[in-house]
């Protein structure tokens, strides 16, 4: 029974990891860049939601506003900070996202302050018991919310014209320009979508008992990066499966291995990242690029 309980708890956490992992994948697929600031962007979104609810706006409505503002903010940051460096070496852009990580964290510290604050719950309190396993409505709601977001996103990428454009830009920017896709605009929108996804991930996390504070997403980012490594940096399905796997693995490891708890749990993701990179560098769901000379 303990095992089943841990599994359920792990899936709940995994849903959050999957959501941020998905944001990382979307950003990577549209710009070829791993945004190390993705977690901190999500923190700022959660802070905005907390401030809005504190001023009396209902939490779902606040989340909606935060999603829109995050989309605009993500797109704007891409336009102002990342776009001017697009022709520079890849490393320069990665350093910029690390710089953004530090900036976003500092902005959170200064504007919101270091004191953790709870956020109004999105879902009703309580829960139910199924053959001895406790399942809270929070957990059900968080998993369903991520599932909804992921389904919508998958349909967007696979069924719409803009989604096809994103896939084109991700794999062949030069050819995309030839057919008349505005590559720079796609990069911008990609960063916007990723930031909006991060907002949902950040706010969802507060429904699993985490308070809003400047470093709330730091462990999530680490596990999400591990999830993306498992799943493949360009695979949405991989991000989801990787996220859930990391949530379950973390929950089991921290509960069953004596002495491994709290931040030390992050060691688990390091082990997973190294193991995957050694065995299958493109990730389990990532495809090797097709190249024919």
């Amino acid at each position: 029974m303990l095992i089943m309980q841990l599994l359920v708890d792990g899936v709940g956490k995994g849903a959050i990891y999957a959501a941020l992992a998905l944001a990382i994948v979307v950003c990577h697929r549209s710009t070829g860049l791993i945004n190390f600031a993705q977690g901190e962007f999500a923190t700022l979104s959660a802070m905005l939601t907390a401030v809005l609810t504190a001023s009396g706006i209902p939490v779902w409505f606040s989340l909606g506003i935060a999603v829109v503002v995050s989309f605009i903010g993500g797109a704007l940051i891409q336009f102002v900070v990342v776009r001017p460096t697009l022709k520079r070496p890849h490393l320069v852009q990665i350093m910029i996202t690390i710089g953004l990580y530090i900036c976003a964290n500092a902005v959170g510290q200064i504007v919101f302050g270091p004191t953790p604050r709870p956020l109004d719950p999105l879902f009703p309190a309580g829960g139910f018991s199924l053959v001895g396993i406790r399942i809270s409505w929070d957990l059900v709601g968080v998993v369903l919310l991520q599932a909804l977001v992921i389904t919508a996103l998958t349909l967007f990428f696979s069924r719409t014209k803009a989604g096809l454009g994103f896939r084109a830009v991700a794999t062949a920017p030069a050819a995309s320009r030839v057919v008349g896709i505005r590559v720079e605009r796609m990069h911008m929108v990609g960063w916007g979508i990723a930031a909006a996804l991060g907002a949902v991930a950040g706010v969802s996390l507060t429904n699993l008992g985490v308070y809003v504070e400047p470093s709330m997403m730091t462990p999530v980012l680490v596990f999400s990066l591990a999830a993306v490594t498992i799943g493949g940096f360009d695979s949405a399905i991989g991000a989801i499966v990787g996220g859930v796997v990391m949530g379950v693995v973390e929950t089991f490891a921290t509960s069953l291995i004596p002495g491994l708890s709290g931040d030390a749990g992050m060691l688990v993701s390091l082990v997973v990242i190294v193991a995957i990179l050694l065995v299958r560098p493109q990730g389990i769901f990532g495809r090797e690029r097709v190249a024919r000379v």
């Binding site: 014209k161 096809l164 794999t171 062949a172 030839v178 008349g180």
Partner: peptide, 17 residues
């Protein structure tokens, strides 16, 4: 300059993008 990772049909659709 085709889209190597996309299908033939998707390549064609992108021509009308």
């Amino acid at each position: 300059g085709t889209f190597a990772d996309l299908t033939v049909e998707e390549n064609l659709r992108l021509g009308a993008y």
